[in-house]
Nucleic acid binder design. Structure first.
Length: 767
DNA sequence: AAAAAAT
């Protein structure tokens, strides 16, 4: 009852916010009554002039000091880092799930037999063992052919919706893009109208492959997928007119990257250094990507040369394009291969309206729905003018609509694990021909308990085994669980460590302030108002702005969903244009909120952990930890929402009694990133560290300590350069601050706890 | 203790 009223109230509020902001009218900001911030925290960057700009050179210095001993190439001859999992290759081989490579066929076929109800008896492509020994290549044509139980015939217009123009790929120029063939032209007009509108994505629920050529039934198998299709101006505008971040990548040329593994391909310096084909190059140009980011320089040639990849890099480093570009390029080069036949066969067996199952050539798994959407949006860009049709499936949205979208054709699928499993069990997706598998934010997916679903998708279904498919894993950290997953999913892979870009490096100014719970709201208002100190925030015209706008977004993190609602209400009542995102809001509301925030209509977003990782929102100038998280990894990810590639950012965290559990880790982070450390924090950390003897008597932290007490078994410091590895977090995940001090650029990858204790005696760099 | 994700 109460809840209902509250919800309704919030909905009304939001409407009013929309009204206020959409009219472009001035937002009534609360005036500060007392100069709380200025008086209590004269050192806060918002109070001092020239926000964070002094820091601009710090990063360069840090990078310059890295001394990677790199000869410029991944396989450098200098001191080489050998990741633990690569040192014990024999062991890992023995432990991999029993004889995949030999046992696979029988297993798969057996599996098929048992599931004919939704495999539709089409168990004829089951015998896939030897057929992809040059995985990613054309694989010697259509191996299912001649294999028995189906006969290939040209199938005309068999349910692919090309009623008017059966020829499909060769549709007349003016028809090639503005519809998916004749029928959709007639029936889907409202669909397209929605897409064109600024809020279209929320109404369409994120579907539709962006007008890429549809999966048309075509009797000729030798269509050349590498040739671009006819341009479509409207679609082009829709895809590419969006926010170009104007990121200055040049500044990041020196971000350290370390590649290890057998025969590591040389990295590139320009997109032109590797042949990705006409379509990709055209779309790179349209996307206004001038130069590859560090992770792209290394990942693109590695993926292009068909190697498996384990990359430790954060979102915001250009990671998404780093795998999308080479994967799509490879698909364009190789064409659909057997999958085309499989789909045709499927159609044939199920009749004209039975396009039940799609066989994507490539699968990207992501932890959150928003991230999946974000990757999908990128994929649409790079699939422009190609025959590849990207799709996205995730929970919280109408599954029927997603199924219908899949049935229009799906070559590249972006998915959250739960919904994908659902789709597979409904027989809508077959991974039999999925030659490219990408796990994005793998650490996060494991944190969220997706491992069973992931293994279900990768190991217990019909996906080609490792070695045949190409697998790429991306993760911000490299804890034990990820190492095991890499061992199980990857074959002879290249390990890529990309220096931190936007997390704890010096382009983010981190401030920790002591704020009691009761003062938090008041303090927050002061912070928000401080953002509009004349001369500090400029709008896009270079003029001083009197309100945060789209160039100056503020992201406020709270710990609970309830807290997010409450704080949003409060801010609204104080006259701020704000919105919120958390897991209890509907998917539609979440996307809407994100859009309002991104566009600057609501320049303040109150969020829970759902928004902490992966989301790439440019122009987040300020991250405020209204509630600090209890896990330091979470902290790192949160503040990483600001200071995205090439930009400077500010992170302010409210600290009080309740945050005792993060004291030491927070201190380490601040020191590592060469941030100013409040003296009280140092004292607290010291106190915490020596708390072992008087555990339980420390009243001061009675609310915060306890569960994490095991952490403080570690007393190492960062002074050695490899600080904190090993002994900390015995048994837990997170807190993986390896590579502390001296190697500043490589934080955050390793959590050595309990994984082959022998490693701890070995220098991380193999010495 | 909380959050995320399939219904």
């Amino acid at each position: 009852m109460l809840y209902g009223i509250k919800t309704r109230l919030r909905r009304v509020d939001r409407k009013r916010v929309d009204k206020i902001t959409q009219g472009g009218q001035k937002i009534p900001y609360r005036q500060t009554k007392k100069p709380f911030l200025r008086e209590t925290h004269p050192q806060h960057p918002l109070v001092m002039s020239h926000v964070a700009v002094e820091n601009a050179h710090g990063l360069d210095q840090q990078i310059a000091a890295l001394d990677l001993k790199s000869d410029g190439h991944g396989g450098g001859t200098g001191r080489r880092y050998i990741p633990p999992h690569l040192r014990n290759k024999e062991a890992s081989k023995n432990e991999s799930p029993g004889g995949w490579d030999v046992g696979r066929n029988g297993f798969v076929n057996g599996y098929h037999d048992g599931r004919d109800n939704y495999m539709n008896g089409s168990n004829t492509f089951g015998n896939r063992g030897p057929m992809r020994n040059d995985r990613g290549g054309r694989g010697g044509g259509y191996r299912g052919r001649g294999n028995g139980s189906y006969v290939i015939q040209p199938v005309q217009n068999a349910g692919f919706g090309c009623d008017k123009d059966g020829s499909g790929w060769n549709a007349p120029k003016d028809n090639a893009y503005n519809s998916f063939g004749g029928r959709s032209d007639r029936n889907k007009s409202s669909f397209y109208n929605d897409r064109g509108a600024s809020r279209g994505r929320y109404e369409r629920g994120g579907f539709c492959g962006g007008g890429n050529s549809r999966w048309v039934d075509d009797s000729r198998d030798d269509e050349d997928w590498s040739k671009p299709l006819t341009p479509n101006e409207r679609l082009e505008h829709e895809l590419f007119s969006g926010s170009n971040t104007g990121i200055n990548f040049e500044k990041y040329d020196d971000i350290p990257v370390e590649a290890t593994g057998h025969n590591c391909p040389q990295h590139i310096e320009s997109f032109h250094d590797v042949d990705m084909g006409e379509i990709i190059m055209g779309n790179i140009t349209l996307s206004r990507y001038s130069r590859p980011t560090p992770v792209q320089k290394y990942a693109i040639p590695i993926i292009k040369s068909k190697r498996d990849l384990m990359a430790c890099a954060q979102t915001g480093s250009g990671k998404t394009a780093a795998f999308l570009l080479p994967v799509l390029s490879q698909i364009y080069t190789d064409g659909p291969g057997e999958a085309l036949q499989a789909a045709k066969n499927n159609v044939q067996e199920n009749g004209r309206y039975g396009r039940r199952k799609q066989y994507p050539l490539s699968l990207v798994l992501a932890p959150t729905r928003e991230l999946a959407l974000q990757i999908y949006d990128e994929a649409r860009k790079f699939a422009y003018r190609s025959r590849v049709r990207p799709c996205v499936v995730y929970g919280g949205a109408d599954i029927g609509q997603q199924i219908r979208d899949l049935e229009r054709g799906c070559h590249l699928l972006v998915a959250t694990p739960g919904r994908l499993v659902d789709m597979m069990e409904r027989g809508k997706i077959g991974l039999d021909y999925c030659n490219y598998l990408v796990l994005d934010e793998a650490d996060r997916m494991l944190d969220m308990g997706f491992e069973p679903q992931i293994r279900r998708i990768v190991e217990q279904d019909t996906m080609p085994p490792k070695g045949l498919r190409q697998t790429m894993m991306f993760s911000a950290t490299f804890p034990k669980e990820i190492q095991i997953l890499a061992r199980d999913f990857l074959e002879d892979y290249i390990f890529l460590a990309v220096g931190r870009v936007g997390s704890t490096s010096e382009n983010i100014t981190q401030k920790v302030v002591w704020v009691e719970e009761s003062d938090k709201r008041s303090f927050l208002l002061d912070l928000l108002n401080a953002t509009v100190i004349p001369g500090e925030v400029q709008d896009s015209n270079g003029e001083n702005s009197d309100k945060p706008g789209k160039d100056s977004l503020t992201l406020v993190f709270v710990e609970t969903k309830k807290g997010a609602d409450a704080l949003e209400d409060f801010l609204y009542r104080e006259g701020y244009a704000c919105t919120s995102i958390h897991g209890d809001r509907s998917q539609r509301d979440r996307e809407e909120a994100l859009h309002q925030f991104r566009s600057g209509r609501c320049p303040i977003l109150v969020a829970t952990a759902v928004a902490a990782r992966g989301l790439d929102i440019c122009n987040v100038k300020h991250v405020i930890n209204f509630d600090l998280p209890s896990d330091i990894e979470e902290y790192v990810h949160r503040i990483g929402r600001t200071g995205r590639v090439g930009n400077l950012g500010l992170a302010t965290s409210f600290f009080n009694d309740k945050n005792g559990n993060i004291t030491k880790d927070l201190l380490d982070i601040l020191v590592e990133a060469k941030q100013e450390v409040p003296s009280w924090l140092e004292s607290l950390a010291y106190e915490h560290q020596h708390k072992g003897s008087n555990r339980g008597r420390s009243k001061r932290f009675s609310g915060g300590f306890g569960a994490r007490d095991y952490r403080q078994t570690n007393s190492s410091t960062t002074s050695g350069g490899f600080g904190n590895r090993g002994s900390r977090n015995a048994g837990g995940h997170g807190g993986s601050r390896g590579f502390g001090g001296a190697k500043g650029g490589f934080g955050n990858f390793y959590n050595n706890d309990g994984y082959g204790g022998n490693y701890s005696q070995v220098d991380w760099w193999g010495n």
